[in-house]
């Protein structure tokens, strides 16, 4: 068991070290940092002064909006990019042959790679999150605990996207298809609530076409991961930054993320277990 964990951890650390050196990833990260930094400066010039809110409140809201959007967009790009590329790149440069010819099982290799991807995503998210918190703290002067919850749930969203992108990457020979797959999961995962709406709007109609649409929408809603569960954006924008999250069942949402991740990993393993390298 000790040897199993040690070898898996070795693969994870190696993946993380290699991931942190990817130029595309560094580029995304620098852009996100610049945007987060720039948000404080930018809002001072563009914040409108009309309405019921004070200029300071509007400025603060804009900072939170820009930072959350930045973290969400660049974070998801980093997650998809790294999850889509780790396995196909190792197949392409033949490193996988030298690893799997050692006493390493395939599920162990995948686990090590997946943990390594998560270490990379977490480190990037933590760095972006710290800057976000500093930007908000410097504006409002209170510890932004709500942001920490928002960032935690954002990571849960990335975890789910990462697991499914990783599963697609295990069947691919290059990073292109899994990258497209990851973007698809991100987009469709944020639209699943609409599928529920579609199913409800069609209602009890007995017309065949309506029935097909209702059933399809309902089943897609049930099967696809619902990424909107992980969003605390409205609360971050409209509540005080040190408020606890409202109406969000954090443990259930985290459990949902973990369940989706396990499903993604099992699909990855199923695809990879008999893959000819």
């Amino acid at each position: 068991m000790g040897s199993f964990l040690r070898s898996t951890w070795t693969i994870s650390v190696f993946t993380w070290r290699e991931g942190m050196r990817k130029k595309t990833l560094i580029g995304f990260f620098i852009l996100s940092i610049l945007t987060i930094f720039g948000s404080s400066v930018l809002t001072a010039y563009v914040a409108p002064t009309s309405g019921t809110s004070t200029p300071s409140e509007i400025e603060s809201k804009m900072i939170k909006d820009i930072c959350l959007t930045t973290i969400s967009i660049f974070g998801v790009l980093i997650t998809i990019f790294i999850s889509a590329s780790v396995v196909p790149n190792e197949v392409e440069n033949k490193v996988i042959y030298t690893v799997l010819s050692k006493p390493i099982r395939r599920f162990q290799y995948l686990l090590g790679k997946f943990i390594g991807v998560q270490l990379t995503v977490i480190l990037n998210l933590v760095l972006m999150g710290i800057l976000f918190c500093i930007a908000v703290y410097s504006k409002e002067g209170i510890f932004p605990s709500l942001l920490i919850w928002a960032i935690l749930l954002t990571y849960c969203e990335f975890l789910v996207i990462s697991a499914f992108t990783f599963a697609v990457s295990c069947s691919a020979t290059s990073a292109v298809l899994p990258t497209i797959g990851g973007l698809f999961i991100y987009i469709i995962g944020n639209l699943t609530e609409y599928l529920k709406d579609v199913a409800n709007r069609v209602g009890e109609s007995t017309v065949l076409a309506d029935k097909i649409v209702r059933e399809t929408a309902y089943w897609l809603y049930m099967v696809l991961p619902n990424l909107q569960k992980f969003s605390l954006k409205n609360q971050v924008l409209y509540l005080s930054v040190n408020d606890p999250p409202k109406d969000a069942q954090i443990p259930q949402v985290i459990a949902y993320a973990l369940a989706c991740t396990v499903v993604g990993y099992i699909i990855a393993l199923w695809v990879f277990r008999r893959k000819e390298l």
């Binding site: 290699e18 440069n93 033949k94 490193v95 042959y97 030298t98």
Partner: peptide, 10 residues
């Protein structure tokens, strides 16, 4: 021990 052809080392 295995040495593949043209393998890459980080």
């Amino acid at each position: 021990g295995y040495l593949p052809e043209g393998a890459y080392y980080p």
